[in-house]
Amino acid sequence: MVAKWVKFQVIEPEKQDWLRGYNAAQQYRDQEGDLDVPYEHQEGAYPLGRWLSDQRRAFRAGTMSGKRADELEELGMTWDTADTAFAENLAAARAYHAKAGTLAAPRHATALDKPVGQWLTNLRRPGGLGKEPERAARRAEQLAAIDPDWNPRVLGWTVDWQRHYVGLGALLKAGARLDEIVPGMTHRGNDIGRWLARQTRDWARLNPEQQHRLGKAGMKPAARAQKTSARTSVKAAGVGEGSDPFTRGITALQQYIQREEKTMVGRQHVEDLPDGTSVRLGVWLSNHKSRRDRLSDQQLAQLADLGLAWAQQPQQGGEA
């Protein structure tokens, strides 16, 4: 009697649930031709993506019978646990994009209880998509299907710039006029107005694609930016030629922030530039911070625009 009770109350329901999952997997395979099922996918009302993830865990733990493993393999099941984890994070990325309209997530961002911001940051690093070229290409395609600009670094700008650009588009779509977007107007906590003012002022420092995108939104460079060459702008900032230490330091800092997405630099850090030279970036920053009162307003503005709080100009009636 005990054996029958166990069979009907425990074994049989578990078997029936497994058969429901298997039938849903078979139906998906017959329709799509494979079992490349997104983690959040439901086949009808059945959570097929989650079920397949559970089967991979059982296979990895050795608790799945050989018969069940064979039956799933006949359907085209792959047991790669790395792809399983990627699929789960990809579902979180979709959820984040549905709310934010972008995958340019800050590091602390979460979705579906997963640290999607840190995960995306890791993927953008060299080799972050995996060492196998085919797998890396497939993952890049999956991310691009959610957001073509998921990795703005390859386009020549930072994740922070992309996040503000998407915020600008959201404000315009909501009915705001470009001249109404002034410092203090925010989107998802980002000051789009202040960012917009910087783009107008520093138009000549943007790459052609950035200028094209902002131009489509109705932006135009400030008059002085149209009349002043890049070389003259550098001299106006009091930094001389491109080989000037301050200019090289700014270039190294921009490169570091674009790669690491942070402004904190270790004292001993050395940044290698594309021309083969190096900048002792940690020392350079420390020296300029200690000599803040000897920097020009233009130099301080360049440093402040890169996010260095100590370089912020004091507001009238306030503190630095």
Rank of each mutant, 00 (worst) to 15 (best):
G175A: 09
R139M: 10
A105C: 10
Q315A: 13
Q118H: 08
S233I: 03
A230H: 05
H97I: 01
M77T: 05
E319C: 08
L303S: 09
W284E: 12
K4Q: 10
Q118C: 01
L214F: 10
P13M: 15
L90V: 10
R68C: 00
A82F: 04
D17G: 01
T81H: 07
P115F: 11
Y256L: 11
D293K: 07
A111I: 06
R125W: 05
T121H: 12
Y22D: 06
A145V: 03
A85M: 08
Q315R: 12
A111S: 15
G66T: 00
R291I: 02
A223M: 08
L123T: 04
E132R: 09
R248Q: 15
G169C: 07
V159F: 10
L35C: 10
G240K: 14
A95W: 02
A61K: 13
A93D: 07
D36S: 13
T251D: 09
P47G: 07
P208A: 12
D54G: 04
R94T: 02
K235C: 00
P126H: 02
S290N: 08
N207D: 14
T277W: 08
Y96K: 02
W195L: 08
G156S: 08
D80A: 03
W79Q: 06
R194D: 11
L75K: 12
P38M: 09
D293E: 15
G193D: 06
P38G: 13
D244E: 14
A45C: 01
M264K: 11
Q258L: 12
Q316C: 02
S286D: 09
A109G: 07
Q302V: 07
G238A: 05
K131E: 14
D30S: 15
R60Y: 04
R292K: 14
R294D: 11
N23A: 11
A140C: 00
Q315G: 08
V265G: 02
E319S: 15
S290T: 07
G76V: 04
L19R: 06
R294E: 08
E71S: 01
Q298W: 02
N89D: 14
Q299H: 06
D244W: 03
I257C: 13
R50Y: 07
N287P: 01
P274G: 10
N190Q: 13
A140P: 01
G193V: 03
A105E: 04
E74Q: 13
E73R: 14
R177W: 04
K7L: 13
P126M: 06
G276F: 10
A100Q: 15
R205D: 12
Q27Y: 00
D36R: 13
H269D: 09
M264H: 05
F86M: 12
E180S: 09
R56V: 00
T78M: 04
Y256I: 14
A170N: 09
W157Q: 13
K99T: 14
D275M: 13
N207S: 05
W18Q: 01
A174R: 05
A304S: 15
T232W: 01
Q26H: 00
T158P: 07
K262L: 08
A304R: 07
L308H: 15
D191Y: 06
V265D: 04
P133F: 00
A111L: 07
A104T: 03
V2T: 11
R292C: 06
D191E: 12
S229D: 10
L295H: 00
S296D: 03
E40H: 06
G189R: 05
